[in-house]
Simulated assay, not measured.
Amino acid sequence: MSAKAVDEAGQLLEVLGRDWRALVAGSEGYLTSEKRAGVHRQNIVWGEQDSMGHVNNVMYVRFAESGRCNWVRNYSRHVDPGHKRQWEELLTNRSIGLILKSITVDFKFPMTWPDRISVYHKLRSRPDESTQSLVLDVLIMSEGKQRPAARCLEDVVVYDYKAGKKSTLEPFMLAQLKETFDLQEAAKKENLQKIRLIEDQLRSLETNSWDRLDAKEDFGTRHN
């Protein structure tokens, strides 16, 4: 390879090493910034493993739960601090709250210690004024393997504890969640474009180096 091609390959590796979370998760619509992630690069601890030597299956439900609570709290701390109290109360039984109705887990590979995880949530559909539940996709990412360790699907009910029945979202919450869904769609489009660009650059490197009609495989020079 020419010096220019080597430099281009190095730049591609730098992008992949820096942006892999956005490329893997963002291309599916997950928002991967620290202010949006439910869990960001949290250490797996040895005690979370079971007798089989990998992270116990029940821990993934706890990872998703922690991620979901922090996903909500991110609105109070970073996205919409003007309504901090109301966002925080979603995690309590004081007024309007969220109740997990169901969760399913699809395990991708047996994660082991040591490792770190990042957990991302995304809205499956854009909420509206009639929304009384949120269906959330969850991605539990292994930092060590740089790929999903598990995927979850959560059905979360909006519940009015004072009235004792299901409820719709507060107008300001609905507005924020609509914006979040739009940001998800934008992130998906942006990162898919980045992936296509990387693939095009990689293909260009291949066709200008080893994948040419006149290319000859170099087995090295034999010395007597």
Rank of each mutant, 00 (worst) to 15 (best):
K194Q: 04
S209C: 12
G29F: 11
E154H: 00
E206I: 10
R73Q: 01
L134V: 13
E179S: 05
D106P: 02
D106A: 15
A22E: 02
V58E: 03
V15Q: 02
R41P: 05
T112V: 13
P81A: 15
E88N: 03
R36D: 02
R77M: 12
A5C: 04
C152P: 11
F107D: 01
K216Y: 15
D128G: 01
P110V: 06
V158C: 09
G38K: 10
H54D: 03
E65G: 03
G164W: 14
D115P: 04
H40N: 02
D128I: 06
D128Y: 13
V39Y: 00
K122V: 11
I117M: 14
S51P: 05
L202F: 03
E185Q: 04
Q176V: 01
S76P: 01
N93D: 00
L197V: 07
R18W: 00
R212V: 15
W210F: 02
E34R: 08
S133K: 07
R151N: 12
S33R: 07
L192V: 13
R21A: 13
S27F: 03
L13W: 00
D218C: 09
S167A: 06
D214H: 01
T221I: 09
V24G: 09
Y159M: 06
W210N: 08
G82S: 09
L23P: 00
K35I: 13
I44Q: 02
L91T: 05
E170T: 10
E190Q: 14
A163Y: 12
Q49F: 12
Q184G: 06
S142N: 13
S209I: 01
A25Y: 00
D211R: 13
L91K: 07
E34Y: 00
D19Y: 00
T112M: 06
A22T: 02
L192N: 15
Q201I: 03
M173H: 15
D211W: 02
S27R: 14
T131Y: 06
T92M: 08
E129A: 14
Y75V: 01
A22G: 04
I195V: 13
T92P: 05
